[in-house]
Amino acid sequence: MFNVKPNHMIKVKRSQRLAFTMLSLAALLTVIILFGILFYIMSQGFSVISMEFLFTEPRSMGTEGGVFSAILGTIYLVALVLLIATPVGVGTAVYLNEYMPAGRFKNIIRFSTELLAGIPSIVFGMFGFIFFVLMLGDHTGGFSILSGALTGVMMILPVIIRASEESLRSVPNTLKEASLALGTTRWYTIKKIVLPFALPGITTSIILSIGRVIGETAAFLLTLGGSLLVATSIFDGSRTLALHLYLVAMETGDLQMALGSGAVLIILIIIINFTAAGLFKLLVRRFST
């Protein structure tokens, strides 16, 4: 029998209560800050939102009109970035985790992805401006949705690769070994066992990447061009809602229009995130049957 002194147990219980209280306060403070920001932006900007604001193009540098072109630009950009980055990022993670043997080259690739994830977005924007806008301008359209999307892909690929690989590594080896023991192929095991099991982590990484694309301004300021017109193809210039908000607030000083754009941006982020989560679950469900 362990001889535990009563005073020691009292101190342990006090420390536990103190730790629980501090953690609860930290969580509560985070929620209060989050909802405080959301409430302020929505309450200030919701009065600007109307059918005309949502479905008309901005005029006079964004001080008049609406945000229709910026909404379309955001949707086009996110869709194109995900269309390119998702299969490349998840496929790379599957190859690194399931096929590539351990060794120096594998460690170099992992270190490189971690290094790329920490590079500031303005550096990606400068590279995208020089490479996609200037050097490949004849093929990408210069300042265009395609140039912005390719820049966005470089920004979020490291995040998707590392987060997806960690999700894949969390799959128990016993499940994979049991599947292979039944005579199935490695790819069949990946498709039926590994990917469905790792779906929550992969989906989370992609949703976080969507948030980074939607909220980015510096990189897309140098690649999208900031056009106020509605883009008719991926080779046209455009602007996202975040970029529109930044330009309106900094260049015109119209804070009311900027807050209205921010309210629309929050609503759009919620819609895109829920839609993306539902689509990815549907795709993996079909993929595993």
Score class of each variant (00 low, 15 high):
Pro58Tyr: 00
Glu251His: 13
Glu64Asn: 08
Gly278Ser: 11
Lys5Asn: 15
Leu82Lys: 09
Pro6Ala: 09
Leu283Glu: 00
Phe131Asp: 02
Phe55Met: 09
Gln16Ala: 11
Val90Ser: 09
Ile145Tyr: 07
Val133Ile: 12
Tyr188Cys: 04
Val12His: 06
Ile32Tyr: 05
Ala26Gly: 04
Ala277Asp: 09
Gln16Arg: 12
Phe129Cys: 13
Val12Leu: 15
Thr223Lys: 06
Lys191Asn: 02
Tyr40Ser: 13
Val264Met: 07
Ser69Cys: 10
Phe132Lys: 00
Leu245Ala: 12
Ala85Asn: 09
Ser179Tyr: 11
Tyr99Leu: 14
Ile207Ser: 12
Val248Pro: 04
Leu243Glu: 14
Ala102Asp: 13
Leu283Ile: 09
Leu168Asn: 01
Pro200Ala: 06
Glu216Gln: 08
Pro101Gly: 05
Gln16Ser: 10
Leu77Glu: 04
Arg59Gln: 12
Glu165Asp: 02
Glu165Lys: 03
Gly73Lys: 11
Leu221Ala: 14
Leu134Trp: 07
Phe105Thr: 11
Arg110Gly: 15
Thr223Pro: 11
Ile270Asn: 00
Ile75Gly: 03
Ser209Tyr: 02
Arg186His: 10
Gln16Tyr: 15
Met42Phe: 13
His8Trp: 08
Gly183His: 06
Gly65Thr: 05
Gln256Met: 14
Ile71His: 04
Asn97Glu: 15
Ser144Thr: 03
Gln16Val: 10
Gly253Lys: 09
Val67Ala: 02
Ala276Pro: 00
Thr63Met: 12
Ile206Met: 00
Ala27Met: 15
Leu34Ser: 11
Asn107Met: 13
Thr56Tyr: 01
Ala102Ser: 10
Phe68His: 05
Pro172Ala: 07
Ile37Phe: 14
Val230Gln: 07
Glu216His: 08
Ile234Tyr: 06
Ser121Thr: 14
Arg59Cys: 00
Ile206Cys: 01
Val31Ser: 04
Thr185Trp: 04
Ser47Tyr: 02
Leu29Gln: 10
Tyr246Glu: 13
Leu38Asp: 03
Ile109Leu: 15
Gly62Ser: 07
Arg14Asn: 12
Phe287His: 05
Gly201Val: 04
Glu251Lys: 14
Ile37Cys: 11
Phe127Thr: 05
Gly183Ile: 03
Leu77Tyr: 13
Thr92His: 02
Gly66Thr: 01
Phe2Asp: 14
Ile32Trp: 07
Glu57Met: 08
Leu25Glu: 06
Pro172Ser: 07
Gly89Lys: 01
Leu195Trp: 00
Val230Arg: 06
Val248Ala: 04
Ser164Glu: 03
Leu208Gln: 11
Gly65Val: 00
Ile109Trp: 03
Met155Ala: 08
Leu83Gly: 08
Thr113Ala: 13
Asn97His: 07
Pro87Ser: 01
Leu18Tyr: 12
Gly201Pro: 08
Phe124Val: 10
Val90Pro: 07
Val284Gly: 00
Leu157Ile: 07
Ile130Asn: 04
Arg104Lys: 14
Met22Lys: 12
Phe132His: 03
Ile207Gly: 03
Ile109Ser: 12
Gly137Asn: 05
Val48Thr: 10
Ile37Thr: 13
Leu136Met: 12
Leu279Ala: 10
Thr289Lys: 15
Leu245Asp: 05
Thr140Leu: 02
Leu283Trp: 02
Asn173Glu: 14
Val248Arg: 00
Met250Gly: 04
Leu29Arg: 03
Asn7Met: 06
Ser261Tyr: 01
Gly36Phe: 09
Leu208Phe: 12
Met51Trp: 03
Leu241Cys: 01
Lys192Leu: 10
Met257Glu: 02
Ser147Pro: 15
Leu195Gln: 03
